[in-house]
Design a binder for these strands. Structure first.
Lengths: 340, 340
DNA sequence: TGGCTTCTCTAAAACGTTTTAGCTAAATCG
DNA sequence: CGATTTAGCTAAAACGTTTTAGAGAAGCCA
């Protein structure tokens, strides 16, 4: 059995309250006593009971990480989510917080989130977004006055805190890279839904075209599902065009790798016949054939900043929402090359 | 502010204890009252305070997931760890438990684990192993009488519960596959440390040789660090042998992909000049060039079974340790092929 | 009718902390 | 020297549950 503060007090011949205050460094207690108490606590291996402290202090020092992922997303983007998680966990550990995991697989459990709030399981929540609509969750959390931060998805509502990568900037960077390599007909293979991630990357694509004075051609856009079949169809139709694209900008690295594979099946060489760009900068993008040019998102940093944003919410009373957009980086590898 | 059980009791004109018992379905309380209480609880959105319940019940319904990863491991095997985590999380959710994350980055914090035990932050612990010695942690947890399960590492001590993949079987399977393809000189590129994972895979390799009556040649073994430099050196020395190997069995997919890249740099074709096998079956093994033949580990299943093992520990009093070894699968892709 | 169950409820203790209010003795002040 | 502050401690309440012990009424048996 673990030792309690009462045992410690008895052992020292002091009252429980004195011991508690000594451990929590109140001005009330003499230095001599404090030292004795700390020494005894260390010697006897005393650690305060978490539940009792939580109850009395009305804080848990726990942060809930709620994963809201679409099924397909979960599979291949593990590296992405795990990196976010590590970033969040490290930042939390430094501040002496713990992370509690909640997987809201189906949005079918609306009261799951309600219970988390009402039963005070955590002090705040990080919403990990993955190609899924969060308005329901956001409304719930706002109404429950539970501090929260959305990570890796920009949120319109100016009251809501979020930390996301610069998807628009990334889309622009990728497209500029292809344009500057001499491409004029660049296809974009994006998601079906126009969620913030997808629409921002597309917006960046369009902006780059405008900057370079190239006309935007809607026929070069494809909105497909995540699976290889969807991608395959998109590529078929693109290559069947009278003037097929010379470059393909895929929504993310997963799609880009599928694109590589499908192009190879068709006997097309990358980057000679068609250039390919990805997005995310996950590690497998460097081991594909050819290695993928892509846009790197600072994923671990996203997690870290999300935690820090939440901690800010805890510390201050009347705080502004934290709305951060992190810069991304162009990584040039062998799937793109200046046109000869 | 969240509503308390006292508010609920007052609202119903009942005592606090009656309401509590009604909610927890005691035989003590009439059906009529139970129904009224449940209805009111639902209507008012009452959920019991987690900390108070934890304190009184002396259980947290939380499971700690302690990551013990070597630095290099963390990077590329995210998919692996995230899959384990998902498996564990799903199983936990079904049993109404939550997962708390602890990253024991450096083993330098011995009292971190002690605090987790003594302050009763969780009911039990899942030790996620990643190429790191766990004896310190295992001793601590045993001594503290904290229920725990080691996942993805076999443990010698027969008192300790673990769930791991059949590394020996996998090593055997991989080697048999290469032998049956006609290879006679098969190199093994393993870890420097002879941890259970590494030594089991190596043992399987040796067993396969014995089964097929091929002499074991120690000169074909390499024990290297995880980084490309280490792998590069191993390959150099292997290819410099008078009779170089015709196949390479790498400890895991990450190493195997490095091997592929290095062989290609040297102008060697895979599988024609040298065959390559990986281990793990992570998704990037299917997108490398050529796609990697490998041994698939049921990672999500590992996490799931670890949780279930822990739950068994909770429910039974005098329980046997759970010691499970899960079967693995040979996946044949293009990096291996029968010798013409 | 009187004692004994049985049924349904309640009062109060308990879980292990933190924190408020207050007490005692020494120190300070005019 | 008496009044007032101050330093250092303690008692007890509080946090929101669960659970033990028991109370009162109704039903049953002889």
């Amino acid at each position: 059995m673990a030792i309690t503060i009462k045992d410690l007090a008895d052992h020292l011949g002091l009252s429980v309250s004195t011991v508690s205050k000594a451990l929590n460094d109140y001005g009330d207690i003499s230095e001599r006593t404090k030292q004795q108490v700390h020494a005894a606590a260390k010697a006897l291996g005393y650690f305060p009971d978490a539940a009792a402290r939580n109850l009395r202090r009305k804080e848990t020092r726990r942060i809930g990480v709620v994963y809201c992922l679409s099924r397909t997303e979960t599979q291949q983007k593990s590296e992405f989510y795990f990196a976010e998680l590590r970033g969040a966990a490290n930042a939390a550990e430094i501040a002496d917080y713990n992370l509690v995991l909640y997987t809201l697989a189906s949005a079918a459990q609306p009261d799951r989130l309600l219970r988390i709030c009402q039963s005070k399981e955590v002090d705040g929540i990080i919403l990990m977004a993955g190609g899924v609509d969060l308005t329901g969750q956001i409304n719930m959390l706002t109404q429950q006055e539970m501090p929260f931060v959305v990570v890796s998805q920009r949120v319109e509502d100016p009251q809501v805190s979020f930390v996301a990568a610069d998807n628009a900037g990334g889309g622009r960077l990728a497209t500029l890279h292809l344009l500057d390599a001499g491409h004029r007909r660049i296809a974009y293979i994006g998601r079906v839904s126009l969620d913030p991630e997808n629409s921002d990357r597309l917006a960046g694509y369009q902006q780059a075209l405008t900057e370079r004075g190239i006309a935007f051609d809607e026929r070069l856009l494809r909105h497909t599902s995540d699976d290889p079949a969807g991608i395959r169809e998109a590529i078929s139709s693109l290559l069947a065009m009278p003037e097929p694209p010379t470059a393909i900008f895929a929504f993310n690295d997963n799609r880009a790798v599928s694109v590589l594979k499908i192009l190879q099946e068709r006997g097309l060489r990358v980057p000679d016949d068609v250039a390919v760009m990805g997005f995310d900068g996950l590690s497998f993008s460097s081991t594909s054939t050819p290695p993928l040019s892509t846009i790197f998102q600072p994923v671990t940093e996203l997690g870290k900043l999300a935690t820090q944003a939440l901690l800010e919410h805890f510390s201050q009373e009347a705080q502004m929402p934290v709305r951060k957009i992190l810069p991304v980086e162009l990584i040039v590898r062998s799937s793109t090359r200046p046109i000869g």
